[in-house]
Design a protein around this nucleic acid. Structure first.
Lengths: 152, 152
DNA sequence: GTATATGCAAAACTTTTGCATCCTT
DNA sequence: AAGGATGCAAAAGTTTTGCATATAC
């Protein structure tokens, strides 16, 4: 609540509820539609457009970070527009993602060597690295993967 | 032309022209719309839907590979649907991409250490790596960057 | 009281699909 | 001749925007 004012945003119900959702949800990575639907379930009458606006503001404020998981189909990516964005709380340190191709679960990892190499590569090519996106797409080899429990 | 039959596709004008476009274009990375527009300029009356279909077929056949450059805005990403896909000839070895945030230019690189690390990370977490996407977003520090020549 | 936010609906985009027609084999 | 391929238009999805109304400070 005070957080919001600090970044120049009024403490409105939509913003409070969305922030709360990210802090309390068991799912760390949420799409705009996930957020919208969760709010609907809580009987919060918040428009989808507002969700997008708040998400964008939070990202710009550094509260959330946005990712695109392109190769993912397990999560329910079907129709039209390429792939949707998912947001996560930007509380922890920087990390990259490993997405399970079978169940859609997302794991996070950080590797200092890879990070360092990325900077070195950019520098060598005459660039100053500003950002990067690294996603691994993989199949789970453990029996406890959710997809293993479903009769296909 | 023989190539197409080999993969079970009829040698039609759209497919020939699109393949030719990728082989002759100075731009290595093309979106569906780029392809469509280039064909229009050549007075080839090929529908956008066909472009998408052919691109998908070529990707499945291993002739092209698809990438998503999310953080990129310089290339003209504006409106609705998140981000568009770009295709490139899958002739060279596997590589990742470095995208200039100023002019949108795309450079390619390959780093064996990063590749190895990715596999190791997936394995450690109990996954078998199937695919990955790594894109670096950076600012050009050279004076010969196209964006440096434009009065902002 | 005023500026900012919200909600709704419509628009902007990318990608996919249905269907009649056309072209390759 | 036959079946796959194309084109057009419409649909499906995600994200953005315009505008009148409601809300926070």
């Amino acid at each position: 609540m005070q957080n919001l004012k600090k970044i120049g945003l009024k403490a409105t119900t939509p913003r409070l509820k969305i922030l709360e959702l990210f802090q309390n949800s068991t799912q760390r990575h949420l799409s705009a539609d996930d957020v919208y639907r969760s709010l609907m379930i809580e009987n919060q009458d918040i428009g989808l457009a507002t969700v997008y606006r708040v998400l964008a503001q939070f990202e710009q404020a550094g509260i959330l970070s946005r990712n695109y998981f392109a190769g993912n189909d397990a999560g329910g990516v079907s129709g039209g527009g390429g792939g949707r964005a998912v947001y996560e709380l930007a509380d922890a340190q920087h990390h990259d993602h490993l997405v399970c191709l079978d169940c859609g679960k997302v794991e996070e990892f950080f590797d200092a060597d890879i990070e360092a190499k990325q900077h070195a590569i950019a520098k060598t090519k005459g660039f100053a690295l500003a950002d990067h996106a690294l996603s691994l797409y993989a199949h789970c080899t453990k029996k406890n993967c959710p997809s293993k429990h479903v009769a296909a």
